[in-house]
Amino acid sequence: MTQVHIIQNFAPGGIEHLVLALAEAPDIHVFSLEGTIGTLADAWPKIGAVATRLDAFGKCPGVDVRLPFRLARRLRQIKASSVVTHHAGPLVYGGAATRLAGINTYAHVEHDAWHLDQWRRRLLVRGALALYRPHRVAVSRVVANAARKRTGFSFRVIPNGVDCDAFRPVRKDEARMRLGLPTDKRLIGCLGRLEHVKGFDRMVEAARYLPEDVMVVIWGEGSERWRLTERICELGLSERVIMPGRTDRSNAIYPALDLFCLPSRSEGLPLSMLEAQACGVPVVASDVGGVRDGLCPDTGLALTLSDREPWRLADALLRHLEGLPAGDPRPFIQANLSFSETRDAYRALEVSHA
């Protein structure tokens, strides 16, 4: 068996972290439409572990009519037995390549549905689903229902899962010492791409309403870094809101936190939120996408956020900090969102036919 997962660009993100985890199995191959193996590995050294089973096709912006044929040729060369595409671009190019290569077992995964609100994207995805007839998968019930409403096709759910052996609780003081973080502060952490959709500007604005003994740490990189940095300085929060950059050791970060915050404007079923809970850290999150599907009901809080009312997020964070729930979110993740079940579900697609 050789299962191929096709993604747009193998750069740090929720989809890519999931695919990277799946690719730890020796029979999983990854196709990245964009980039070269060299540029991808330079930008994200962690993918070096799967470099021998990674192909990058260097797609440039715009339509590439030859790409499906290149993908199909490579699929035949490695004797792929099944294909899984993730998101719209891989659906269009990978779906065509899968059918050109004569591969029957093909699944497509929707990780969020907000992009389907754009009518052109909706028509593109709906047409590709009708033409290529993949087995349709969504990462949460909310995403599945939203995708069904927008495309007219039903989706089964394979939720994102967490490796609970890799993500586990550690003594908070030890975790902070390793990271060089203060032990006399209450820490709220965020992790993700520094892009507008992730809502970290909301966290920065909310920080000015938090007490001085609360520190906010935002890990990640992206196009919003300089804008966020400037705003932090404008608000005089440089000592209380820090951005250490990207990390490939997220399992070392979560145990250092008192609380994890996900302030996103749009999401599917975010891995960072699941990972934090696997480490025993409660979560306050924006009520978007499939967040409620992945939030421990005993320890987590989902709320509607507004850019104009940052104090509401600050109030929710402070109330959660001062009255931290007695429960532990880790058993919820172990019981409902374990990576072993996610991996087995994707393996089972091998015997599913379009």
Rank of each mutant, 00 (worst) to 15 (best):
residue 156 R to P: 01
residue 108 H to S: 06
residue 152 G to R: 04
residue 164 C to K: 03
residue 165 D to L: 12
residue 127 G to F: 06
residue 117 D to S: 11
residue 108 H to N: 03
residue 158 I to R: 02
residue 158 I to M: 07
residue 89 G to N: 06
residue 162 V to M: 03
residue 146 A to H: 06
residue 132 Y to D: 00
residue 164 C to N: 12
residue 114 W to N: 08
residue 168 R to A: 14
residue 137 V to C: 05
residue 118 Q to L: 14
residue 120 R to D: 10
residue 111 H to G: 08
residue 136 R to L: 14
residue 116 L to S: 04
residue 123 L to P: 01
residue 148 R to V: 07
residue 153 F to R: 07
residue 118 Q to C: 09
residue 171 R to P: 02
residue 98 T to R: 00
residue 175 A to M: 06
residue 170 V to N: 07
residue 107 A to R: 02
residue 100 L to I: 11
residue 176 R to M: 09
residue 88 A to W: 15
residue 120 R to F: 07
residue 153 F to K: 06
residue 103 I to E: 05
residue 160 N to C: 12
residue 88 A to F: 14
residue 134 P to H: 04
residue 141 R to G: 15
residue 112 D to A: 15
residue 91 L to P: 01
residue 91 L to C: 04
residue 133 R to N: 08
residue 102 G to S: 12
residue 140 S to Q: 07
residue 90 P to M: 07
residue 165 D to Y: 06
residue 95 G to Y: 00
residue 153 F to P: 01
residue 120 R to M: 09
residue 161 G to K: 02
residue 134 P to E: 04
residue 103 I to K: 04
residue 88 A to N: 09
residue 157 V to F: 11
residue 99 R to N: 01
residue 146 A to F: 07
residue 147 A to V: 10
residue 130 A to F: 07
residue 123 L to F: 05
residue 155 F to C: 10
residue 112 D to R: 10
residue 131 L to V: 12
residue 145 N to W: 11
residue 147 A to T: 11
residue 128 A to N: 01
residue 88 A to R: 10
residue 132 Y to W: 10
residue 171 R to L: 14
residue 151 T to Y: 05
residue 101 A to D: 02
residue 115 H to K: 08
residue 152 G to L: 06
residue 143 V to T: 14
residue 105 T to N: 13
residue 88 A to C: 11
residue 121 R to G: 07
residue 104 N to Y: 13
residue 162 V to D: 00
